[in-house]
């Protein structure tokens, strides 16, 4: 098997002991409660995206504790392979989280006797891109400084996303903002192909840039 994929599997083995069925069920329960209460599938996706983001950082945290980076060297893995494998692992864990979230959302829709909205898949893509972009901001810092030292900085991207959500309604006005969002949503729905192409381009560019930075930082590290 390709070494990058073998490494991604090693990352999964590293976090598997913390990724118990109980943990997944707790997240699923929270997601279902949020979904039913708020009547929104996006909240479920958001919770599972956060779940993916948290777990994608675990290998860094465990590595800080027992110097797994040294293990990778003794296994004959090049530093580029480690970075590539970690990105593959990171994207997969977010995707897996979102798929579980999407399934949980579908269950909620069925419980609420609502028709399943095919646009939910576009929402899934949007949340995936957003989560992946946050992760792309976090990984280079974690590769440079390790988990503990990077912790404050890695949550900054999340704050950058969160601040407009909190600050815009009072600034712009709730109704006006809702109107704007509806307009943006309608425009996006009308230009779906363009939106998806733009998203993929932005996502690809940022992830590639992030990968290049991570390689640069990780190559310089001593363990």
């Amino acid at each position: 098997m390709n070494k990058v994929l073998v490494f991604a599997r090693l990352d999964f083995s590293t976090i598997r002991v913390y990724l118990t069925v109980r943990t997944v069920l707790v997240f699923a329960a929270i997601a279902v409660v949020f979904g039913v209460t708020l009547g929104s599938t996006a909240s479920q996706l958001g919770i599972f995206a956060a779940f993916g983001l948290i777990f994608s950082a675990y290998p860094f945290a465990i590595s800080d504790k027992i110097n797994l980076d040294m293990l990778y060297v003794t296994l004959g893995l090049s530093r580029r392979t480690v970075v590539r494998g970690r990105y593959v692992f990171g994207e997969l864990i977010i995707l897996a989280g979102l798929l579980i979230g999407y399934l949980a959302g579908t269950v909620v829709e069925v419980i609420r006797n609502k028709q399943i909205d095919p646009m939910g898949l576009v929402g899934l893509l949007l949340v995936f891109v957003l989560s992946s972009l946050i992760q792309a901001c976090q990984f280079p810092i974690q590769f440079k400084a390790g988990y503990a030292k990077a912790q404050l900085w890695t949550w900054l991207p999340l704050a950058v996303v969160g601040i407009p959500v909190v600050a815009l309604p009072p600034l712009v006005g709730g109704e006006r903002l809702a109107g704007m969002m509806t307009d943006v949503g309608a425009w996006m729905a009308g230009n779906l192909g363009l939106v998806i192409a733009a998203l993929i381009l932005i996502w690809g560019g940022v992830v590639l840039g992030s990968y290049a930075l991570s390689v640069r930082f990780y190559l310089r590290r001593d363990f």
């Binding site: 599997r9 002991v17 040294m70 004959g76």
Partner: peptide, 24 residues
């Protein structure tokens, strides 16, 4: 490489470790 304490995840069993290291 043999360190004073193993550089393996503490929660792994030796059997799991075997499966994890073998492909490398």
């Amino acid at each position: 490489v043999v360190m004073d304490t193993p550089i393996y995840v503490g929660e792994w069993t030796i059997n799991q470790l075997r499966g994890i290291l073998k492909p490398f």
